[in-house]
Amino acid sequence: MVELLIKGTGETLYMVALSTVFAYLLGVPAGVLLSVTSKGGIVENHSFNWAFGWVINILRSLPFIILMVFISPFTRLIVGKAIGPTAACVALIVAAAPFVARLVESSLAEIDAGVIDAAKCMGATNRQIILRVMLPEAIPSLVRGLSITTITLIGYSAMAGAIGGGGLGDIAIRYGHHRYDTRTMLITIVLLVIIVCVIQVTFDKLAYRVDKSNR
């Protein structure tokens, strides 16, 4: 039993960590693109922004379970199978990347336009403005977004577990729901709550520590 729970926790953490990393690898550039092409952005481009925004909205509006089933042929193509924690990651990444893109976009929107004007006046290139002004100035907000993303992914990963993804969600459904083993189900829930709390507290502290603009 304990072994099972340890394995489940490990799988959940593995799914969340792996999909967070890849969701950010895709989501940060996408969010930057949304931000710089928006009205008043450094490379304002209305039609691109509109079209790209729609793609992201469509991806975001698909319910996760549907998405997971829908992309399973694609998943099989990439990881060779459609079940298990690694396979679940594909769906988690596809679900989280557009979410991250919007979070990054809103973090970047918080930056004072004057700071970007100042950088332009110093002779910064667009690349320098993005990499050395926008992203670094948005770090505290990006860290808060990261905590929202990981916690959302824990929820999704539990859903993925329910349809063959493994992890704590899988255990909760198999033991709790199918076998009426309430004790096991409660333990998995407590474990999930603990993981969420630890992540929240850690990232809150981190966001506060890295933010130099509030003291």
Binding site: G114, D117, A118, C121, P136, I139, S213
Partner: peptide, 14 residues
């Protein structure tokens, strides 16, 4: 040219 703004526009994280 150097520019000085009313709102300073300093980088807050540096």
């Amino acid at each position: 040219m150097g520019v000085v703004f009313q709102g300073y526009n300093l980088l807050m994280q540096r």
